[in-house]
Design a protein around this nucleic acid. Structure first.
Lengths: 230, 230
DNA sequence: GAATTCGAAACTGAATACAATTCAGGCGCC
DNA sequence: GGCGCCTGAATTGTATTCAGTTTCGAATTC
């Protein structure tokens, strides 16, 4: 039995996780040799993984200077959320037009099954995973794999900001999750009723609301990043 | 004067062009050593370039089996066009909301300056470059660099289908270009008037119209690809 | 004659070695 | 004292090499 997962994949996943955990500070230059030692792989697979992350927008690259962590600015996060609006609203629209009734019902079911868990969960990672899962399933209803792909990429880059946001909310509200599953339900109901306008506008306002929170969270992130190392 | 463009970039550009020229047939396996000889570079930079193309959706990759040209199907092209609708409609919407008047005027100007050239051009590549340039500028008006980035990626993958489409049109119409610059003008007018609804719906119908042509073009492409080598 | 297994050739995966470039610090010159 | 050039240390860019996997074909067996 050979290994099913290549070294590059392993390194790639590790890097993504590191990026989510702020192992790289914005605009920081990434040292290949040092990283390859940490990750236990040579520079060749490491560079392949880094290149993938560049193409996906997680990192940047300058000729003969190497890889850099992407700068983190409020306007960058804003851009990502606006792109999400574009992708998810169109996904909702397409779902309204052509998703089979049974698939829509399945999503509504999923929402119902998840609700208790969603209401009781306090772990931000868990909450985020459920939220992303819902949005990914909805994108699936569009039947368009490009939209799914783009959304997946956007979510990957937004994730760490959302985590900060959720942690902040939990700390403020004393362990209470935001838990606005109602917005999700509203979207699904719009789709089920084949009411494109309602579904799209519910989706839009849902994401835009989250955007406000996230841009605020970026400022928190700034303060966390640029204070002396804890 | 040192080279400003790295070897990887050169290889990457060459590969993109090869993909656009059908140097690889859909689902064809790509031989790294052979390719590296053709391109005059070793496998290391070649693989970096290939990985970038995978991340951008131009190629696929299977563990221990290598790189493959992506399959070309009508539904794949459909997906790309639908994604374009999502991105460009939102870009138009954002432009309506917040693009400075002078930038909108500049785009209208650009359209006017280009019109004679657009009407007289017969070379499909030239036409396509102008069309893409317009859409890219419009995306710029949104002020959202993510949307620009996504659009650029989508256009890169749609390009070769559009080229086939345009060539077909030219051949059918006897050298006459489609030249429906009027749709572009309509979109810009909508934005200039800050009429979001008009601008977005003009954009949507414009792209969806092109989508119809393109899915037809895919069938042409199929016939071109799967006949015995000329 | 067909199917299966074994083996060799071809190809990919990854590491290492070396060349080219950048960057920082120091020295000399203005 | 400040500016610019030069040198070397560090880092990236690319080639080469070797190991592991896949693939294809031929030989053997049923």
């Amino acid at each position: 039995m050979a290994k099913r997962e290549s070294n590059v994949d392993r390194v790639y996943e590790a890097l993504r996780r590191m990026a989510a955990d702020f192992a790289f500070k914005p605009d920081q230059r990434i040292n290949e040799s040092a990283l390859s030692e940490v990750l236990g792989a040579s520079r060749t697979p490491l560079r392949e993984a880094l290149n993938r992350l560049v193409a996906e927008g997680f990192l940047t690259f300058q000729n003969n200077r190497g890889f850099f962590c992407r700068p983190l600015t409020p306007s960058y996060i804003m851009d990502l959320y606006e792109a999400r609006v574009a992708v998810e609203c169109e996904a909702a629209r397409l779902a309204c037009t052509r998703a089979p009734d049974e698939d829509i019902a399945a999503l509504a079911d999923y929402l119902n099954r998840m609700e208790p868990e969603y209401q009781s969960a306090t772990d931000p990672e868990e909450l985020l995973a459920m939220d992303e899962s819902f949005h990914a399933r909805l994108a699936q209803l569009s039947g368009n794999s490009e939209l799914q792909r783009i959304l997946n990429n956007l979510n990957g880059r937004i994730r760490y900001i959302r985590l900060i946001d959720l942690k902040r909310m939990r700390d403020r509200a004393g362990g209470k999750a935001p838990g606005d599953i109602s917005a999700h339900r509203q979207i699904v109901e719009g789709i089920a009723a084949r009411n494109t306008k309602a579904a799209v506008s519910a989706m839009r306002s849902h994401i835009e609301k989250r955007r406000e929170e996230a841009t605020e969270a970026v400022r928190i992130a700034f303060s966390q990043l640029y204070v002396p190392d804890e």
